[in-house]
């Protein structure tokens, strides 16, 4: 299929079960998903339906029980943890609800950390980091420490960090979950603007119908599989 050949991220018949006290918890039951270059997709679902788990599987942070995850043409199933880590550094950006900035580094250093881990720091990436900070409206805050920034500002630093290496895929897990409505809205607008501008495919997990509706495709995680959102 031509669609498949263009997909930057694909999940095929993915199953994931957790062992919990007193039994097993089947979180994903044969889930299929695929996203093309530069497209944005939202995933909604009840709390505990497995959205975060799904993103972890997409990112290769956890292994699937069954099925297959592919980044572009490559199946990541049989990659070693080291190989996954190395590929993740350049092919994937991640944004979380809690911003997870390194407290001992300035805003700019936090953004640059992505390049350091990928081993691609150069004058160019430094310039790009500055540009991205500027782009998220923090051009004059390069030297500020995360402890002295507001939640929205921190999340914007995290967004700049996630796309610094120009990854084809950005995974965002409730990026506005900790922010008030207005801040959440501006942050989300910025995020969507940035991914369009950079041509990054976005998988956005959110509880908000509004934000979900702003994405090109909308999915709901229900009963362990993804269904097209009824509202689309």
């Amino acid at each position: 299929m031509t669609l498949d050949s263009q997909s930057v991220l694909r999940a095929k018949d993915v199953r994931k079960t957790f062992v919990i006290p007193g039994g097993e918890l089947e979180v994903l039951r044969g889930l299929n998903f695929s996203i093309r270059e530069g497209v944005s997709a939202s995933i909604r679902g009840e709390s505990g339906s497995g959205k975060s788990t799904l993103l972890h599987l997409f990112a290769g942070l956890e292994g699937v029980d069954q099925g297959e995850i592919s980044w572009g043409p490559d199946s990541i199933n049989h990659w070693s943890p080291r190989k996954r880590a190395a590929e993740r550094a350049v092919r994937l950006g991640l944004v979380f609800q809690a911003y997870h900035l390194v407290g001992e580094m300035t805003a700019l250093e936090n953004v640059l950390l992505a390049a350091r881990i990928a081993g691609t720091v150069s004058a160019e990436t430094r310039e790009r980091a500055r540009h991205l900070l500027d782009r998220v409206g923090l051009g004059n805050r390069e030297k500020q420490m995360p402890g002295k920034m507001s939640g929205g500002e921190r999340q914007r630093v995290a967004v700049a960090r996630a796309i610094l290496n120009n990854p084809p895929i950005l995974l965002a897990d409730e990026p506005t979950g900790n922010l008030d409505e207005k801040t959440g809205e501006t942050t989300m607008e910025l995020l969507l603007e940035l991914v369009r501008e950079q041509g990054v495919a976005l998988v956005l997990v959110t509880h908000s119908r509004r934000f979900a509706g702003a994405c090109d495709e909308q999915w709901v995680l229900h009963d362990g599989i993804l269904e097209a959102s009824a509202e689309a």
Binding site: P81, A85, V90, R161
Partner: peptide, 16 residues
């Protein structure tokens, strides 16, 4: 712990 998780998510190896 979460910062360390984030480092992994950003592609840091266990060795690193």
């Amino acid at each position: 712990t979460r910062e360390i998780g984030l480092l992994s998510a950003m592609g840091a190896s266990r060795f690193g």
